[in-house]
C-alpha cells in the first residue's frame, strides 16, 4: 500500500523563503528542498525543533501559505473529487461564540459532501466519541484546554476529510491530558484510517502516533532522516511505554537529533511555539 502510486501527498523540492522584514532586507528560509510522499491512510509525524518551519510546511500543504518554489501535489479523493483537507490547530482553533455542538455542526453544514440529514447523527456520534456529551451546550471559555482540543479533533474527523493536518495540537496541554488525547486520537484514527500529517517537537508523541517520522533540522528546515515506526496497531500508549523497543527508539532518535536539540534547547524553552 505504501508505494509511490498510492501517494496522497507528494512534496517535491519544496522551499519557503519569507520576504525581507523591511529594515534589514534579510530573507528568512523557513524550510528548504523538502521532498517526501505520504501514502493514503498513513500517519506521518513531522518532528523538529521550533524554527524548522514545520508549521509553515503544514500551512503550505493546506494552501494557507504559498511555497516559494517546488510543489505540493494532493491526489484526488477516492471518489475522484478534489481531496477534502482538515486541520487541527495548536489552540483557539474553535470558535468562542459557538458551543461545542455548534462548532462541530458549522463545518459539516459547509461541507457539500455531507448530507444535511446526516449532520445531527454525525455530530452526536463525535460529541460522545470524544466524551463531551455533558458539555455539548457549553461555550469554549467554560471548558478546559484539553476539552477544547477534543472539540477540535471531533470537528475535524466529523467533517470526514481525506487528509488531516495537525499542527502541534497538544502542545499546550499538561502531560496527563496530552496522553489521554493521544490515546483518543489513536482510537479515532484506528477506526477511520485517515491520512494524517502531524507536526510535533515531542519525540515520544511522534513515536506513539506515527507510522513514519520525518525528522527535520532547524534554520533552515531540511529533512534529516525518515524513520519507520514498526509498532503494531492498534496501539496503546501505556503498553508502548513499557516496551524496550519504545525506549530504544527514543534514544535512537534522541541521539540522531541531539546536536539539533542541544543547539536549540534555549530557543525551545523560550519561543518553542512558532515552529
Amino acid at each position: 500500500m505504501k508505494n509511490h502510486t498510492s501517494a496522497q501527498i507528494s512534496i517535491n523540492k519544496l522551499t519557503k523563503v519569507f520576504g525581507n522584514d523591511g529594515r534589514t532586507g534579510e530573507l528568512i528560509t523557513a524550510y528548504e528542498d523538502l521532498s517526501f510522499q505520504v501514502s493514503r491512510g498513513e500517519f506521518i509525524c513531522i518532528l523538529g525543533p521550533s524554527g524548522c518551519g514545520k508549521s509553515t510546511l503544514l500551512r503550505s500543504i493546506a494552501s494557507l501559505e504559498k511555497a516559494s518554489s517546488g510543489e505540493v501535489q494532493i491526489a484526488p479523493s477516492d471518489s475522484g473529487s478534489e481531496s477534502n483537507i482538515g486541520m487541527v490547530f495548536q489552540e483557539r482553533g474553535i470558535f468562542p461564540w459557538m458551543t461545542v455542538t455548534q462548532n462541530i455542526r458549522f463545518l459539516l453544514e459547509n461541507n457539500p459532501h455531507i448530507d444535511t440529514h446526516d449532520i445531527d447523527s454525525i455530530v452526536d456520534h463525535y460529541v460522545s466519541k470524544v466524551g463531551l456529551n455533558k458539555f455539548a451546550a457549553y461555550f469554549p471559555h467554560q471548558i478546559s484546554g484539553g476539552m477544547k482540543q477534543r472539540v477540535s479533533i471531533a470537528r475535524s474527523f466529523a467533517n470526514n476529510p481525506d487528509i488531516l493536518l495537525m499542527d502541534e495540537p497538544f502542545v499546550f496541554l499538561d502531560s496527563q491530558t496530552r496522553t489521554s488525547l493521544q490515546e483518543l486520537l489513536l482510537n479515532i484514527w484506528q477506526e477511520t484510517h485517515k491520512t494524517v500529517v502531524f507536526v510535533t517537537h515531542d519525540i515520544e508523541e511522534a513515536i506513539i502516533l506515527a507510522d513514519r517520522i520525518i525528522v527535520m533540522t532547524a534554520h533552515p528546515g531540511r529533512i534529516k532522516t525518515i524513520i519507520d515506526v514498526d509498532f503494531p496497531r492498534p496501539r496503546h500508549v501505556s503498553h508502548m511505554r513499557k516496551t524496550s523497543q519504545y525506549h530504544d527508539l527514543i534514544n535512537t532518535i534522541g541521539n540522531m537529533i541531539s546536536d539539533e536539540i542541544s543547539d536549540l534547547m534555549p530557543t525551545l524553552n523560550t519561543t518553542g511555539l512558532s515552529g
Binding site: A62, L64, I85, M87, G93, L107, N110
Partner: peptide, 24 residues
C-alpha cells in the same frame, strides 16, 4: 486563526460573514 479555519474548511462566504465575522 479563524480566517485560516474558514479557509481550510471552505466555509461559504455568507456563513463566514454571518457566523464568524459578525459574532467575532
Amino acid at each position: 486563526i479563524y480566517h485560516d479555519v474558514c479557509a481550510v474548511y471552505k466555509i461559504k462566504r455568507h456563513n463566514f460573514i454571518l457566523k464568524v465575522i459578525l459574532p467575532g
